[in-house]
Design a protein around this nucleic acid. Structure first.
Lengths: 249, 249
DNA sequence: CGCAGCCTTGAACTCCGTCAACTTCCGTGG
DNA sequence: CCACGGAAGTTGACGGAGTTCAAGGCTGCG
């Protein structure tokens, strides 16, 4: 289904996100919204892009939850990022011809695909837009670095707590979470694949966290009961999310 | 010591690198080379930038070897990238105000610092330059992802082999390596810090690799003796380095 | 109401970390 | 030229965090 970005109600989420990075002049935002897009419905588990492909479009998430991942020879999977509505997980394909990883829907999702050519034109016509989108890819890289540190150097307990902290912050920024409670859209297997653990061990650690009174967790909601202890256990310092930078030039 | 980029013989390495990404029109390259820079000599171990700082310049590596790292609460260190001459490890600080990690010299090094303001002007005056530098930061992110997969999902043997493969490719691209032999500028402790291991274990694994006839390694040189087996053990697929993309628009 | 995907549990195992010594290498200065 | 000291590499014994394998229980969707 082909339409324009401005025809989709979800364009507001994208503009709000970009504006939170750096104020976007009206004409630049308008040029972006004029872009033609194709809306797609995705089953849970469906691939948006595959390693080795050479896409000619990027994908805006409208609804659902999406991850970037690599497959390991022995069959394992490493998830490298989660993406929520308003994100463009494959913005990089604008500059890197070949996909070095895959992207898949973790929940039933809806996306808008944007062809590279017109997108490139709009971006290079506006230094502000260029800055904002470049910066967005840099924040992704910063999150990659934080995850590397977690996977490489933290205990399973800290890693899991860290991921939950990050999810809380992300959902709160998107207006989808209460104070310390947020919807859980991923499985324990997903958590394991993101943190370099097994689902068996994730399960045991989650039980530890529950029995220590730090966490309430069921299939739909997570609630962090003791933010200070949780945050300390997680060694969570949100600097790497670069949200305070919003006002930077 | 303040001078211009064009006055340093090492500017050729930078231009060659950028040209290998996308052909740089003469005037754009000239504008870049006209930038004023300050040359710095660094002792081994000296920090170039520290977590939480808000630098107002970026750093071009002229000579030596540099790494990006984070410090973990318990005193551990996670190295997230190695950078060789021609790289600009903190290009991101152009868009991300606060450093989310530190940068340090692993060997005695020489750098040229470039103030953000004039650099920004040159970049936004040239879509090609913007593309090339943006792309460079995206390749960094791609390497981060590959490392995440390695740390999260590969055995210590594979991880170490993978890192050695990557170093070989990098040095060969820089013209600093023979067929399968390259200079080793990092210690076993550095390798451990990059891969989420301990130096003790790195040492034992290196001995395994040597005794299996896969590797010759001393303090100054490494030589991969059986590239095919080594590459397979490492699960090494150089797609993520995005070198074949050189010709992409 | 049935089934598939997810969660949970237990026992055995192993890769890698920890601790603590010892050796080798190399740059520096006497 | 050698002696020294510090950093890097090496070795062994031991312990533990996390994996593996296998089975059983729950739950939400069609």
């Amino acid at each position: 289904m082909t339409t324009r970005l401005s025809d989709l109600p979800e364009h507001e989420r994208l503009i709000a996100k970009l504006n939170s990075i750096s104020t976007l002049p009206q004409p630049d935002a308008a040029a972006l919204l004029r872009l033609p897009v194709t809306v797609r419905e995705l089953q849970r588990g469906a691939d948006i892009a595959r390693q080795q492909e050479r896409p000619s479009h990027s994908t805006l998430i409208l609804e659902g939850l999406v991850c970037r991942y690599k497959t390991v020879p022995d069959g394992g999977r490493q998830i490298m990022a989660f993406h929520i509505p308003g994100d463009i997980p494959d913005l990089q394909s604008l500059h890197l011809r070949t996909m070095d990883h895959s992207i898949a829907a973790l929940r039933p999702s809806r996306t808008a695909t944007i062809a590279h050519e017109p997108l490139r034109e709009v971006i290079y016509g506006s230094p502000t837009l260029c800055h904002v989108l470049w910066r967005d890819t840099l924040v992704d890289a910063a999150i990659h670095r934080e995850w590397m540190m977690g996977i490489g150097r933290l205990s399973a307990h800290s890693r899991i707590a860290h991921l939950l902290c990050e999810l809380l912050v992300k959902y709160r920024a998107a207006g989808l979470a209460d104070e310390h409670q947020f919807p859980v859209l991923i499985t324990q297997t997903d958590i394991a694949d993101a943190l370099g653990l097994t689902s068996v061990h994730v399960n045991r650690v989650l039980q530890d966290l529950r029995s220590e009174g730090l966490l309430e967790l069921d299939r739909s909601q997570a609630k962090i009961l003791n933010w200070d202890r949780f945050r300390e256990l997680a060694a969570f310092d949100p600097t790497y999310l670069h949200v305070e930078d919003s006002i930077a030039a």
